[in-house]
């Protein structure tokens, strides 16, 4: 039973990662590509869960969970920094343009 859970979690994790990588390849615009780096954190979480199912709360399980938490927390930070850099590179600053003003 445990082996089935491990194989299911592993294939789920690697499937998410593969689809995200193909998404990054297929998209043209950097902002569209950035959308596909988000779910990659879920792939890491699924693999960490598979290791937890296999090893329990041993050194290995806790460290893989820590890696998953670090990647999930750092995902949005990297995405925001990259999108901001892309926008500054495009327009010279990141402040919204008059045409893009929303809700004033």
């Amino acid at each position: 039973m445990r082996d089935i859970a491990v194989v299911v979690l592993l294939s789920l994790g690697m499937g998410i990662q593969a689809l995200c990588a193909i998404g990054v390849l297929v998209m043209e615009d950097p902002f569209d590509r950035l959308h596909f780096t988000g779910p990659a954190g879920l792939g890491v979480l699924a693999v960490a869960a598979a290791i937890l199912v296999e090893e329990g709360l041993s050194v290995a399980g806790v460290k893989s969970l820590l890696v998953a938490v670090v990647i999930i927390v750092s995902g949005p930070v990297l995405t925001h920094a990259t999108a901001r850099a892309a926008r500054i590179r495009q327009f010279g600053h990141w402040v919204p343009m008059p045409a893009e003003k929303v809700g004033d």
Partner: peptide
């Protein structure tokens, strides 16, 4: 960045 996440896995 995407490759960094895949490498960690």
């Amino acid at each position: 960045e995407m490759a960094g996440v895949v490498d960690a896995v």
